[in-house]
Each structure stands twice: as C-alpha cells, then as structure tokens.
Amino acid sequence: MRDLDFGTQFIRKVEVLDWPGDVLVEDLSYAAHRVLHLFQEVRPGKVVLVGAMPRDVDPAGTIRRYALDLTPPPDEEVQARFGDAAGGTIDLDHTLAVLRYMKALPADTVVIEVEPADRSFGLGFTDPVEAAMEPVLAMVREEVGMSTPVVASDE
C-alpha cells in the first residue's frame, strides 16, 4: 500500500523493541467496534495514534503531532459509521468517531500523522515518508516518557 501503510509498517518495526511494561503496542487496523472493545478492556491512560493521513496542505513527509479533539461527530454520522464498521469496513475515521462517541479515549490522546506522497499500491515508502519513520519513533518515545533510546529486544 506504499505510504498509506505507514501505521501498519511502523508497528511491525517497533513492536520488537523494548517498551515499558505499561505500554501496549497494537495495530488498530481492524473494525471500529472491535477497537472499541479493546479500549473498553484496556482502559488506557494515554493513547498515541500513528498513521499516514493525506490532508493535502503540507509537503509529503510532513509530520503533524497534535492532541485529538475528543468532541464526537453528530449522532447520525456516528450511526452511519457504526453500521459501516459492523459491515466489516476498516476506516480510521470510523474508529475515531466511534471511540469518541463512546468516550473510550482518554483525555490524553495524541495523534502523530505523516503526510503521504504516493497513495497507490506498491511496496515500500517514498523517500520523504521513509525519512519520517525515525522522527515519528522519537516522538512516540517522548510521548510515553522514555528517556533512553529504545533498542531491539534481541540485541
């Protein structure tokens, strides 16, 4: 999926690293209500969401980090997204709408997103998105309060 697969590939890269015991690294690319169930079970104190998100306002490879506005969308929109998710559609917007509506996200929810360059299918990332991988990892480490570099668990 090229650049749009940033979040999934990021997880594959970092899940093998040593993380603090209270940090759960999880690929959330499944349907919204399933993610809801996970959050209801885990009840996280902080969430850091990572992914590629085309917004067409910044150059490719731009990293945006911001606190998520937890105001849910209108009811009709949430209902439509719930229905779509129940039908198996995996969509980050569905997930965010459902999680916000059901108050499953903590107040401390941060989004780190990368502007993709190539939205087509294919292998690997474009150079600007590839270059974003390490800075995003550093931001995530900072968000979870890690002061020392993370290393692979088998090193």
Binding site: G87, G88, T89, I90, D91, R119, S120, F121
Partner: peptide, 9 residues
Amino acid sequence: VIVREVNSC
C-alpha cells in the same frame, strides 16, 4: 484511479 479502498464484507 483507486476511488475508495475498503476492507469490507
């Protein structure tokens, strides 16, 4: 052109 990509039923 990929109009929309979904994983669905």
